[in-house]
Amino acid sequence: MEESLLPLDRLPLGKRARVKKLMSEGALRRRMLDLGLVWDTEVEALQKSPSGDPTAYFIRGAVIALRSEEACKVLVETI
């Protein structure tokens, strides 16, 4: 099933997906979990910043900006 997973930073704008796997470790993993990015959480890619990175995501009712280096460690499955 791993092939169907997509790094979050490659999720097209306006598309929704579910979090399936976190690749990050340690403090960063903790921060991601604290954001509510646990298994099966729905996220939507909203908007890229003028330079294309970071990107704003809709996560559990809040708009959160993540740089692609962090977002690429969140694997999602598009809905």
């Binding site: 960063l28 921060r31 970071p54 708009v63 959160i64 900006a65 740089r67 962090e70």
Partner: peptide, 9 residues
């Protein structure tokens, strides 16, 4: 380092 920013309403 990592960057996480909330765009508040």
């Amino acid at each position: 380092s990592s960057f996480i920013l909330e765009l508040s309403p």
